[in-house]
Amino acid sequence: MTIYEKKELDLLAAKIRLQSIISMASYGSGHAGGVLSLAEAMAVLYGKVMHYDSANPQMEDRDRLVLSKGHCGPVLYAVLALEGFFPLEMLKTLNANGGNLPSHSNMHKTPGVDISTGSLGQGSSLAAGIALGMRLRDIQRFTYLILGDGECDEGQVWEAALFAAQRGLGNLIGFVDWNHQQLDGYTDGICGLGDLERKFMDFGWDSRTIPGHDVEAVYDAVVSAQAVKDKPSMIILDTVKGKGWSLTEGKPNVHHITISPEQLTEAENEIGTVIRNLEKETAAARQGNL
């Protein structure tokens, strides 16, 4: 990955962060912690990896994304809007009466959402079914699955892990957003998950752990996973809950927070500065000056 490409993805991640916060602030609250920890993964997927057409969201020959931690809809909506699936202005209709951006993602309401999620654990089975469906229909694309670490408490995740490995679904690439916290506290203090990388390996997956806020590491991991043809792959993203906003980064109890207009202004200032700096660096990198 060139420095320019890296800066471009960092910039996209910062924009995703800010737009997610604007969206959640429009409603007054949201699952900020798990939304913000996913910004880099979303930037790499929609900014560089996935094959899609924002003008034709239902294009059959496309990659699919299953956001199994469906409560983090706002991070998906932010990247979809930034990539042109719908206007940025629509992000301010999160959870609105009769609106098309429910807090948990719904395939029948939002352009670009490939499948409805919201009851934890189920996305893993949906993704396995989609990957199997791609194989049966000879669609040479990938299915990407995003799980939360707390979500791995659900038995269905492990049922699906066995099912996908048994069928050698090499077109299934999963991520665990290992941000170390769930609603009630640290995952280790609630239902310790142990060594997730090793667990998925034992369940028959290719598995690796990477720094989840390093866009180059995320991209390289996806490329490596794509090369594994005979088994599904899991990428454990070592992340920080609430990353990239001083109000939430690394703080406890940020699974779901209220966001006041004043806090939104602070976020716009803080992340706006990051965006402007990255824009300068991206421009410099494009000209080979970085």
């Binding site: 395939m107 490939d114 499948i115 893993s124 089975s125 993704a127 396995a128 989609i130 269905q156």
Partner: peptide, 12 residues
């Protein structure tokens, strides 16, 4: 998992 995978297959 069977019911969930069926949802994925159906979506395809």
């Amino acid at each position: 998992n069977m019911a969930g995978a069926a949802g994925g297959l159906s979506s395809m």
